[in-house]
Amino acid sequence: MSVDTATVTRVARLARIKVTAEEAERMTHELNSILGFVEQLDEVDVTGVEPMTSVVNSVMRRRADEVTDGGDAARVTANAPMSDDNFFLVPKVVE
């Protein structure tokens, strides 16, 4: 499988990365090189093989239902490029 520039542009949009036409052109080339490389996986017979879910053979640990965190909005917003009254600010979102 290979991708064309339109696909790369669509994928970049999905990933929310602005790309110029030239970048899309260059990336199309690079992505096709990678996709060509991974194509060899098609040789592998994976019939009846379970996909790996985790390399760790253990049961997922759980926590007790206790409030142990939060309560410090200033800490949460300290790194925000734009904030007001402990809210994060973004350009107006229209639904």
Partner: peptide, 17 residues
């Protein structure tokens, strides 16, 4: 996360990292 699930609260006060 261990932040409170209670309704309301001051902005970003029921928020963990």
């Amino acid at each position: 996360s261990g932040a409170s699930a209670a309704y309301g609260g001051a902005p970003n006060s029921h928020v963990s990292l």
